[in-house]
Amino acid sequence: MDVRVMGRGPAEPFLSARDLFETEHDLAWPVEVEVREDPDERTLTGHYDDSHHVLIMSEQAARGAMARELALHEYSHMLRYEQAHPSHTQSTEEALFLALTGRSVERRKLAHCYQIANHMKDIYADDITLDVAPADKLVSFLESSLATALADRPGEAPNGSTTSGSRRLTPAADPEITVVNAAFALALCERHELVGEDHRLYDLARAAASDAPGVRFDRFKHAFRSLADDPDPSDYRKALVDVTREYAT
């Protein structure tokens, strides 16, 4: 793997992640890492027609305890893209059009639908990440993110959408999307048998579900957990359309 780190911040987390990633996988395209003082997202991955990937990370994240794990997660997104995996080739806009045509949807909920699509991409990226990295930091990240969301619930989530491929579980503490975030966290953990039934994530998920009883937690957890490893593109599109429609309507 060719990884080149530019900008302010340390190179070591990205190179360490590369070395760990290469024990099981490889990327055909080179990776340009840009460490920035204040990007729009903590992490952002892009793929370009001249056959290279770009990973943008904030300096704060690059110096944090999760830096290597964040880089591994983004390398996994890059590999899914190179594999032409349906989760990373399916247009989110197309799926939302199919799911929501003829329906009136709040702008807030539309932004959440983009986040749900990103969760589905993250499931497939983390299937790779968890092949090469211990799960402890990821589980702690999911737990702390949900705890923070439950402790701080603004009246309305900000407008906008989560960028494809970014690692950001709870960009807004809206109770309805927090239920979906909790379902994603537990689905990922159950999919890889990372936690026991007495783990605090289950208590957090129950609290989230009680705050937004109109959102069917079990439906979303099953949808995320049961995603097929290697779906047909049409099957993946249907799964994305179904889960989007479930939330928006």
Rank of each mutant, 00 (worst) to 15 (best):
V3K: 00
V3M: 01
R4N: 08
V5W: 01
V5N: 00
V5K: 01
F14H: 03
F14Q: 00
S16C: 12
S16D: 15
A17D: 02
R18G: 03
T23H: 09
T23M: 07
A28W: 00
A28K: 01
A28L: 03
V31T: 03
V33Y: 01
E34D: 15
V35L: 12
D38Q: 14
D40F: 08
T43V: 03
T43Y: 00
L44M: 12
L44D: 04
G46Q: 08
G46H: 05
D49P: 15
H53L: 01
V54M: 13
V54K: 11
L55P: 02
M57K: 02
E59M: 08
E59C: 05
Q60Y: 08
A61Y: 07
R63T: 11
G64Y: 06
A65G: 11
M66F: 10
A67G: 06
L72N: 02
Y75N: 04
M78F: 00
R80Y: 00
Y81E: 09
Y81S: 10
Q83C: 04
Q83R: 15
S87E: 00
F97A: 12
L98Q: 12
A99Q: 02
L100D: 06
T101R: 15
G102E: 10
S104G: 10
V105M: 04
V105E: 02
R108E: 15
L110F: 13
H112V: 00
Q115L: 08
A117Y: 02
H119V: 01
K121M: 12
D122A: 14
I123N: 06
I123Q: 04
I128D: 00
T129W: 00
T129C: 06
L130K: 08
A133S: 15
A135Y: 08
K137P: 03
V139A: 05
S145P: 03
A149S: 13
D152A: 15
D152N: 15
R153C: 13
P154F: 09
E156F: 10
P158R: 14
G160M: 08
S161M: 07
T162I: 09
R167Q: 05
L169G: 01
D174H: 03
T178E: 06
N181T: 12
A182Q: 07
L188M: 09
C189V: 08
R191W: 06
L194Q: 04
V195D: 07
D198E: 13
H199C: 05
H199M: 03
R200Q: 11
Y202P: 01
R206T: 10
A207L: 11
A208F: 09
A208W: 07
A208D: 09
A209C: 12
S210R: 09
D211A: 14
P213C: 05
R216V: 13
F217L: 14
F220R: 09
K221Q: 14
K221N: 12
K221F: 03
H222R: 15
A223L: 10
A223K: 04
F224S: 00
F224P: 00
R225G: 03
D232C: 09
D232E: 15
P233M: 11
S234A: 14
D235W: 09
D235C: 11
Y236L: 06
A239L: 05
L240S: 08
T244Y: 06
R245G: 06
E246T: 13
Y247V: 05
A248K: 02
A248S: 08
